[in-house]
């Protein structure tokens, strides 16, 4: 499997000596383009640490990561393959947070268009891309609105559009349905599945939301820093 995201033997240790804590221990994951997988585990199991390693926010202690067919991290060969992790995050990883965390002083279009603009694309191209995504997510009618004028569901859809703005091979979603009721949570999952399929993006959804766990075809359980893969119910929510 060349595309998507592949992780082998990923470990993360905080501290040294007697106070050292192994937050991740030989984690292996493989997510294909267009696939949505769940990452499930109790608090303190290592979910957030794994997400931060995958998001190039913290450096793993050991392991190997491939993203979109390129090695991005190899602890045996100097760690990160690029020194510009900021550009790596901007161009190749999408983020969806528990709360939308939209920039409050930018309207919906510019919240989405900001990423392509940061990547150096022209304003017009960036805004056209933003509108295309907003249309795909049924929020184009709120394109000129400020985040404070949107409902919670609309804000989350805009944050999904932002994550897709630079067409990243992978999106990391950190409990994206936590503040939503069942109906809206399932709506978000429908959107994520549709977007993954439409844009051939691998999506990792960190969650302990019982409402959405049955929708995954594949789930990674994480416990004490170790992951176990299992097949999910893959309930049809289309």
């Amino acid at each position: 499997m060349d595309q998507g995201i592949h992780i082998t033997g990923l470990s993360k240790r905080y501290g040294e000596g007697e106070t050292a804590v192994d937050a991740l221990k030989d984690v292996n994951m493989s997510i294909a383009p267009g696939e949505v997988v769940g990452l499930v585990g109790p608090s303190g199991s290592g979910k957030t640490t794994l997400l931060k390693c995958l998001g190039a926010v913290i450096e793993p202690t050991r392991g190997h990561m491939t993203l979109g067919g390129e090695v991005i991290y190899d602890s045996d060969h100097d760690g990160w393959k690029t020194r510009d992790l900021r550009a790596l995050r901007r161009d190749r990883i999408g983020f969806i947070f528990q709360a939308p965390y939209l920039i409050p002083f930018l309207d919906v279009t510019d919240n989405v268009a900001l990423l392509p603009m940061l990547a150096g694309r022209a304003n017009g191209t960036s805004r056209a891309r933003a509108l295309e995504l907003l249309q795909a997510l049924d929020v184009a009618h709120r394109a000129r609105a400020l985040p404070s004028e949107l409902s919670g569901g609309e804000q989350q859809r805009v944050s999904i559009a932002r994550a897709l703005a630079n067409q990243p091979p992978v999106i990391l979603a950190d409990e994206p349905t936590a503040p939503l009721d069942s109906e809206r949570a399932l709506a978000v999952m429908r959107i994520l599945n549709r977007m993954a399929s439409q844009y051939q993006t691998a999506i990792i959804v960190v969650t302990h939301d019982e409402k959405i766990i049955p929708t995954f075809k594949r789930i990674y359980h994480i416990r004490d820093g170790r992951t176990e893969e299992e097949a999910g119910e893959g309930r049809d929510i289309s």
């Binding site: 900021r86 995050r89 965390y101």
Partner: peptide, 16 residues
């Protein structure tokens, strides 16, 4: 602070 963290996470340069 939270918005700045998000801006940095999604790739905004420190100088920006």
């Amino acid at each position: 602070i939270r918005e700045i963290a998000v801006l940095k996470l999604i790739g905004t340069r420190n100088r920006s």
